[in-house]
Nucleic acid binder design. Structure first.
Lengths: 373, 373
DNA sequence: CCAACTTCCTTCGAAATCGAAGCCAAGTAG
DNA sequence: CTACTTGGCTTCGATTTCGAAGGAAGTTGG
């Protein structure tokens, strides 16, 4: 089912090749899935020199996932099919600082409304995904010591959402969702990918051997590395000169404000850079150098196949160019020999795709239930 | 077979529990393995409240692995059982700079002699493992752009060794072997482990999700990260102020030599520190601070369960204490909350154990052949 | 147009795997 | 000492999976 959902297989024959199962076993199980209403047959595919395959796809009635990617003041909502492809999206203003109960209740309500408005009432909801701008304990689905989410510490987000919807819930850090989405959407054949999210904060998600690396829940933090800089700035974490305190969108906004240039959102910095405002360009280049320096050590250590730069600031070309330059200059040739450095391709829907992918990964339970019927 | 070799299972019942196979299937296959001479039954184990299990272990005649861990001027040789436990060890002086053919021929010959001398002539050799102090391409078993191994670049080490022995050969970076061995021997239940090898150079191996992370072959490099320091030193890699140029055993020896203290081998630095020679202690503390700074970023990023410090310098207590202090002070609390920082437990035999573990992992082919007979 | 491939998919007997039941050999409680 | 409990291991019929063979539906080249 996963092979069909990810688009890697479109026919029984491809399923057999990729899964390693015998063709006869594949046929049997595909038939079960069709009978259960999860798969649908859709015409014939292109011939590869012999009989044309009968194309398989997920049935529309197989189900949907509802996904919300929360930021500090904003949530991106989506209803997606089981492959993670968005069927309907919406934006919701909400202040995460009002606490988990109110925020999540509003989000779940809006997700339901979204699905209803787009004629999905007859399609069962198979899971809910929540992206949060803070560290999440994968075992419990709780937020742990978030810096900018008052009231959320140790709140059982997963249980709360499952309780209010009755379906499996996935709770994950926003950068991690983005990393899974980028990998699944744009680099599925690469094993090791690093995804940096440059927005008002600096986040990072890591794919190792094709799977999200969570560590003990804190993996992927790159924002509190000490950097070398002339001016000393204290970071919210209590240490001086963290990367985030110098190079995040929020830090850039503050430094621009000190020069008389007022910005409210990181995307406005991108606009200023595009307009050629010199203070903005210079600030962004400095940030790029700092971020690049930190990434140098991580690229040498982790030796990824690709480094993807996303988040709203990734549209500032000088920023990306500077990062790229620093990495190619300072890293070991062996580490950069085959390294792709690219900007996000999936864009804002990467997290939806990522959540869909992870939700499908925990779908074994309900799939089995559906098949038994 | 792997479960028995690693000591995780000692009876058919344990195999069934851990493998997920049905007890009846386990019994069948164990019988095959015993018939083929790979397993042996050995008395009864401790009762867990019912009938006592019949203990299983690898048969002596099942085979041995031959392992050589090469350094710049020295090789550690061992014959090990299929579990990686050393049955016989030896040391060999050899200069790696004479090139791969001569070095490997001598090593293979000495390994054969070692096995012969210890009465293992009747036991089949199932594989040969070679540890090298440079980057190895996992796909081809070749060394790639090693800095201190003249003549080895792109030499097909694996094919050469297989050609001269007729058995599967494993070629791997020395720090990687050590990492696998430490993980397998001392921290088998942890998923994510970082192992640092502090000797005349600085190496690092990474275990992610229980498996060795190789990246594109260069993963685990931490020695060419730029550090901040007053005195500028050029590194062999062409960049200034790499960690290795300041904090490796070789760098420490050079800096001590400049102060009139002559050392030839990193272990002598440990002796000097133990004797309380102030220049040595001070040098080692400075190195610890630099290494700790670099590790801080990596610990935040990778969020391991354990950080193991090995190599000959790991016996210098002030060095380890300084590293530990820097990490606990600078890392995110979330990253250090459950972090173990320990020194090597397996010591010099870690690489042997690691090679054995990896060789058993690629043993499917010959096991199948043995069973078919 | 036709024969000679290719590839896709299903059919059907063989082989592997499972799981319930039962036997075996210990510990344990009275 | 006996009866009961617990866990280890095997037996045997049911189920799943496999793989060779063959039919179906194409392409390719004369």
């Amino acid at each position: 089912m996963r092979l069909v959902a990810t688009g890697r297989a479109e026919s029984r024959a491809e399923l057999a090749r990729l899964s390693g199962l015998a063709a006869s076993s594949v046929s049997l199980r595909v038939e079960q899935l069709i009978d259960a209403g999860l798969f649908a047959e859709e015409g014939a595919g292109a011939s590869r020199g012999g009989r044309r395959p009968r194309r398989l796809r997920l049935a529309r009635e197989a189900g949907v996932f509802l996904v919300a990617d929360l930021g500090a003041h904003h949530a991106r909502l989506a209803a997606a099919d089981l492959a993670g492809t968005p069927l309907a999206v919406a934006d919701l203003d909400c202040d995460i600082a009002v606490g988990p109960e109110r925020t999540l209740t509003a989000v779940v309500e809006s997700l339901r409304a979204l699905a209803r408005e787009h004629g999905l009432h007859d399609v069962p909801v198979r899971g809910v995904g929540i992206g949060l701008p803070g560290p999440v304990d994968p075992a419990t689905g709780q937020v742990v010591s978030p810096s900018r989410m008052p009231g959320w510490n140790d709140f059982p987000v997963r249980d709360f959402v499952t309780g209010h919807t009755g379906v499996p819930a996935l709770v994950e850090n926003d950068a991690n969702l983005m990393a899974v989405g980028e990998h699944r959407g744009s680099w599925p054949s690469l094993d090791n990918v690093m995804v940096i999210k440059l927005g008002s904060g600096i986040g990072c998600g890591v794919i190792v051997a094709g799977r999200l690396h969570r560590g003990r829940g804190a993996a992927g933090d790159i924002s509190h590395v000490r950097i070398l800089s002339e001016a000393s700035v204290d970071c919210s974490c209590g240490h001086p000169d963290c990367l985030e305190a110098h190079a995040s969108g929020a830090a850039l906004a503050a430094s621009l404000a000190a020069q008389g240039v007022v910005v409210e959102h990181p995307s406005q910095i991108v606009d200023l850079v595009a307009d050629g405002v010199p203070q903005a360009t210079s600030a962004v280049r400095t940030a790029g150098r700092l971020i690049g320096d930190v990434l140098t050590a991580l690229v040498n250590f982790f030796n990824p196949d690709a480094l993807v730069i996303g988040g709203s600031l990734s549209n500032a070309e000088p920023l990306v160019a500077t990062i790229r330059g620093v990495i190619y200059e300072r890293c070991l040739p062996l580490a950069t020999r085959n390294l792709e450095i690219a900007t996000s391709r999936a864009g804002r829907d990467a997290s939806v795709l990522g959540a869909g992918h992870l939700l499908l990964g925990m779908a074994d339970d309900w799939i089995e239930r559906v098949l038994e019927r």
